[in-house]
Design a protein around this nucleic acid. Sequence first.
RNA 1: GGUCUGUUGGUGAAACGGUUAACACAUCGCCCUCUCAAGGCGACAUUCACGGGUUCGAAUCCCGUACAGAUCACCA
Length: 480
Amino acid sequence: MKKIRTRFAPSPTGYMHIGNLRTALYAYLIAKKDDGDFILRIEDTDQGRLVEGATDIIYDTLKACNLSHDEGPDVGGNYGPYVQSERMKLGLYSEYAHKLIELKKAHYCFCKAEDVEAQRQAAGNSFYFVDPCNKLTQDEIDNKLKNNEEYAIRLNVDPVGTTSFNDEIYGTITVENKTLDEMVLLKSDGFPTYNFANVIDDHLMDITDVVRGNEYLSSTPKYNLIYEAFNWDIPRYIHCPPVMKDEHNKLSKRNGDASFQDLVSKGYLPEAILNYIALLGWSPNEDREIYSIEELAKAFDVKRIGTTGAIFDIDKLTWMNGVYLRNMDIDKYYELVKPYIYDVVDNHLDYKLIANAIHDRINILSEIKDMISFLNKTEDYDVDLYNNKKAKTNPELAKELLPKILESLESLDTFNNDEIFNCLASKAQELEIKNITLMYPLQVALSSRSVAPGGATAIAEILGKDETLNRIKEAINKLK
RNA sequence: GGUCUGUUGGUGAAACGGUUAACACAUCGCCCUCUCAAGGCGACAUUCACGGGUUCGAAUCCCGUACAGAUCACCA
């Protein structure tokens, strides 16, 4: 069997959005499942739409996701991406377009682009372009060429009959040829159209599986006409359903929807993002959702890609990101979280203790900041906070309990979570109250919050004995 | 408007003619518990857009309707 080769072929016209990334992921997985090659090709044949830096974003995103491509032009010892504008300099596309003219599968078109556009505008939806240049005699053509008239090259289309193709996901799709127009292959500026360059490169790069968004479903018959004109093998087509923002709209940067970069900067892990988007439109053959990229490649099956657009659900991604954080190797977790902790907290505090306290409480890294900001200094709070139904506490009771807690803790030599807890637990027993009744006022005194990461005693350990006692005294004063 | 494609709960989805229609997120309960989480347990679609048909039997097959999306460029 032929080696599987897939490609990701984005245009550098903006940011890398989630739908795009998912298409790249699927292309990658399909190749890797069978030990095939994954290729990156930048399709920048539209000079007008180039966006500065867009190629770098694509490149960096793929790198961050570990979706590395297997070949390409040499760039400082690494594989760069193939870039169509570079390849064009080789005269490649023009050569193939002219070859099609020789084969009588295409023809010169001397129409002005603006004129065609004007006709289209005038005719509205029902416009079907019939190229008058089709009727030009060879002499007329030679003459125009000799006069250096600008020209485009258009594909010849026989309007009778139908064209069918098979898509791995959508099945066999048939369209009538009369709905296909004589599309431009080579633009008058000498650049190939996307459609043409795409087919040429896919063939030249020996792409076996074309993976792309299903917006290309309708234009695929046109691609096949080109393959057939050259008598080339048609690749396997895999058209993926879109990733939606809501029922009606696709996810897009234009609407301000989250891009990969946005998600990462909010504290989502690339592995989690990849894992999550793999499940948008594809489902595994087992009851499982957490997959590393290697596991995905193993489990991936094109046949299990769905046909309907999937709405991107940030809540589920958030949950999954939390799973990744919780399952992560603990040392790796410490290192990951350390900068986020010291970004808000004084660095004489032990970041590992803090990391432990928030371990089961964060789903995304950006939540850390608010969660631990009280560690630096006490925050303003109302004594009403001492009212707690579950703990059965109120400011009066806190006023009574806090001095007792202070007294107990002052006598402690080793100030760690276990010691503090045991000390206070026996104090609670002695006072014949539930642990929570004693702990809750301490929590408020130490954290200034009704909800805190970790138990009150864990926070005490993080703060250290001096600061803990200070905060308790501070709280007692506040209650006077 | 033509053409193409699709339609299972709030969301992602499974089911490949016969199950009480999996599972996960979210939501809501309960348990655990020094708060909150995490974890455990449970609830949550009399029903698979709608209407016909085929069949002993349909979410699954066929036809129609509705709705949605895509596409009709010298954009990609």
